[in-house]
Design a protein around this nucleic acid. Sequence first.
DNA 1: GATACACTATAAGGAAGAACTATAATATGC
DNA 2: GCATATTATAGTTCTTCCTTATAGTGTATC
Lengths: 291, 291
Amino acid sequence: MVPSLNLDVLQSFLVFADKLNFTHAAEELHISQPALHMKIQELSDAMGVTLYRKIGRRLELTEHGKRLARFSRDISHRKTVFLNELITGSDNEPVILAAGEGAYLYILGESIKEFLKRKKHPLSLLTLNREGILDAIQSGKAHIGVAPLESISPPGVESTPLLRVDQVLILPSSHPLATKKKLQLKDLDNCKLIVPPADRPHRQMLSAALQSAGVTWEIAVEVNGWELMLHFAKLGLGLAIVNSMCTIPRGLVARPLIGLPSVHYHLFNLAGACDRGAQAELKRMILKGVQ
Amino acid sequence: MVPSLNLDVLQSFLVFADKLNFTHAAEELHISQPALHMKIQELSDAMGVTLYRKIGRRLELTEHGKRLARFSRDISHRKTVFLNELITGSDNEPVILAAGEGAYLYILGESIKEFLKRKKHPLSLLTLNREGILDAIQSGKAHIGVAPLESISPPGVESTPLLRVDQVLILPSSHPLATKKKLQLKDLDNCKLIVPPADRPHRQMLSAALQSAGVTWEIAVEVNGWELMLHFAKLGLGLAIVNSMCTIPRGLVARPLIGLPSVHYHLFNLAGACDRGAQAELKRMILKGVQ
DNA sequence: GATACACTATAAGGAAGAACTATAATATGC
DNA sequence: GCATATTATAGTTCTTCCTTATAGTGTATC
């Protein structure tokens, strides 16, 4: 028999899938924890697949669970769009864009401005890190994501190249190294560097590259975000390595760094999910915005 | 408050919307008629719109009702596709194509063959008249429709020009008129014509054109379908006026007829509804098939 | 390693909702 | 105007789902 899949149940599963915690999800849904538990269990039974599993005391969605969550979000979204259109006569569900701070600051500004001017369609911005952006796209929480592409893009996610960004060394114009036009990694030997915290991808990329070039270096300060890195570079705390798209404050200069991999910014969206309407419009504008 | 819109209820509404008869729909759903009536009534209440109205003792959907039916079909279809994909790992819901007999015989054959060969995706064919085709598209019962475009296409339906087909007069090669290369409407004065029944668009178009050209004519036989019209023309019952795309049997000749409007075949689909997957594939192939 | 803690999972009673039967109301055709 | 087909409503029964209570389970803390 075909499972019933009530929208009500899908909605409950969606909240659970976001929280991965029956107790809290049940609170949000204003039902008791056993009630939610039973719903999910019956859903799982009806579909004949397990939706989550216990890892220690954490819960995590199985592949089937993730797909159901994506499906639920899609259906739930269509429902609200439909009801909106039915009453107001037009779709005014926001388009959701997920990107990092850097992308917003240096890549997306004009496109976003243009989109809001042309489409008069609500836009919701999520500021997330790379993993968060891909996760948001995969789970359907965001429609369009902009982030550097590392390795391959996950299955079901479509990626379009946006632009290549080189890494540059930022240093005070008075710094001895500033006299050279092009710098090698080994020029950084014994320098104090302003770097992101150890768990950030940019930091890991830097560590790996400097390590393999045999460069010894020191942490000047650990700080997250291009703007802050530039700020502390300006204060003379140390040298920073940032994307070449950043606007360089007065008193600092940027020098190309041979031997660091370029960053390839891509636009991500769920395959086939933004072919039309406001989402397609935003996608086109972002692509146009980088030529 | 947001209406709950259970899938279960949407499914019930869908059956009701197709039948427009509570008694029969309830039977199909294996519930009592009052149960179905109450469901629909509560659905209507929850949404705050009337979904149907009584015209005499017939029921008809309101505009809101039609939109809800379309939405329900869409959601219901997505659900079955999702469940299919979840278990079998692939989408094997058939693509539904609606067209007239003529279009299948003379326009779509190769494209359909090609589609089945390439995609290995199930295909379901509906043979309908013009109104039926547009209705099937609008209500979501079919994904792609091929039919002559008259007036403008209804709102929400996308149309793409496929090909222009002229009307030709079919007559035995021995017929006196066969000596002329091009014929005028007035050449048909006092001829016996093989025509479709009075309610068919082709017949209405013919009647109107002959009428306004002041031509008097006789009905040889009323018969529906190009193939049959040609068959009876071959038997010498009278002259037929058919689309130039028809293959002309031996012993008959086709002559262009000045003064009859061309038929403009278009491809129809619900706006934005066949951007991807097998539906998009079929659409591309049909468009390619006519160059 | 025993205890506290946070949470999942199960069981049994009770409240809400949905379906059924019966029947009134309404429109149509003969 | 009566028979027929169907929509619409009411009251009752039955199922479903929610709630409280509680057992089970994996982590952290002393």
